[in-house]
């Protein structure tokens, strides 16, 4: 079931002079109940603008956001249905209030529990769901008395309090220690299954995106340059940018020779495109062109969204926004950027 559908979303920011800056350009996707969609991108790719638009913190310049098939959902109802987990657990909890306050307020404000005993019970249940026990002790504490992982659990519990259909997770683990990241991700994964949530997992980490989502969208400068089933996008990336991202991730099992070889190829590719030295403004064409090792003449025009893999059931298949895969284009490069070692 489609919980949230985004059609041709564009987000603009006013600039001091000149045209507004377009942070998100013509983005369409849908979030399905019980499934995770990962939105992968680096800083400046526009992924936080997508989140702001989805959480109605900014008004989109163009496009529609349909909740349960309707785009005329009133504020109150929308807020109840779409909740967000923020990146920084140290900033997302109010230092002057107890944990209890953080959970009780959304319950009361959205009418999910009545004042008094029902709310007490709901708070206890929420804390139990995110494995913060004994609930009574935790509820009394203030944020500074909790560790980063515990705070993030509280933030998740707060987002669950209005019983949302859609959960937006904005880099939920990037500020946490490595050893507790997976607990939080596993927790989100479990809650998604138990509550049939539609989860949008925004991250810059390809590896967790692959492991925790069924589909991946890769964003670059406001556009989705590649999307598809997560294994296909990561193991057989088609867009040069995705290939670059995949090549940049460390490979734990590689031998010294493989590492050295990988470095040599990367540096050759880098010399070829020489990114930092000709950071040119792109008009209508492909935005990755200045950094792309395969840039060609046709790239000055807007690239088409090409189908690069079979349209598997459920998703819309594997697609890339690139001239290399346009109909009638020359042979696509077979991943010139070296792939990581094969799976053992």
């Amino acid at each position: 079931m489609t919980a949230l559908e985004v059609q041709n979303l564009s987000v603009d920011y006013a600039q001091a002079h000149g045209r507004p800056f377009r942070a998100v350009h013509n983005l369409s996707f849908s979030l399905e109940a019980g499934r995770t969609l990962a939105l992968v991108g680096e800083s400046g790719s526009g992924k936080s603008s997508v989140l702001k638009a989805l959480s109605r913190l900014v008004r989109p310049a163009e496009g529609r956001i349909l909740l349960g098939g309707r785009d005329d959902v009133r504020g109150r109802e929308y807020r109840r249905a779409v909740q967000m987990v923020f990146q920084d657990p140290f900033a997302s909890l109010n230092p002057s209030h107890t944990i209890d306050h953080h959970l009780r307020r959304p319950l009361l404000a959205t009418g999910r529990a009545r004042r008094g005993a029902p709310a007490d019970q709901a708070v206890t249940e929420l804390l139990g769901q995110v494995n913060l026990t004994p609930a009574a002790d935790v509820a009394r504490k203030r944020p500074h008395e909790l560790s980063g992982g515990q705070r993030q659990r509280v933030a998740i519990a707060r987002a669950l309090a209005p019983q949302p259909d859609v959960l937006l997770a904005d880099e939920p683990v990037s500020m946490l220690d490595v050893s507790i990241r997976l607990e939080i991700l596993n927790l989100l994964d479990r809650l998604k299954r138990e509550r049939d949530l539609a989860l949008l997992y925004v991250t810059h980490d390809l590896a967790t995106a692959r492991h925790f989502s069924s589909e991946i969208m890769v964003m670059y400068r406001g556009e989705v340059v590649e999307r598809g089933p997560s294994d296909e996008v990561i193991l057989a990336p088609k867009h040069p940018y995705t290939q670059l991202l995949a090549a940049a991730a460390p490979s734990t099992g590689a031998t010294r020779e493989q590492v050295r070889e990988g470095r040599r190829v990367r540096q050759a590719a880098r010399a070829q495109r020489d990114a930092e030295r000709r950071e040119i403004v792109v008009g209508d064409g492909c935005r990755f062109r200045p950094r792309c090792p395969f840039a060609m003449d046709s790239c000055v025009r807007r690239p088409p969204e090409a189908q690069v893999g079979p349209a598997a059931g459920g998703g819309s298949g594997h697609g890339a926004l690139c001239w290399l895969y346009a109909e009638g284009a020359g042979k696509a490069p077979a991943a010139t950027v070296p792939q990581q070692k094969p799976a053992p």
Binding site: V178, L182, A207, A249
Partner: peptide, 23 residues
Amino acid sequence: QGLLRSFPDLTGVRRELRGIPGS
């Protein structure tokens, strides 16, 4: 060992993933 289990390998087979409980 726990740390090594704490981050998934990008292209490796999917395996059991868990962190280290506690602080």
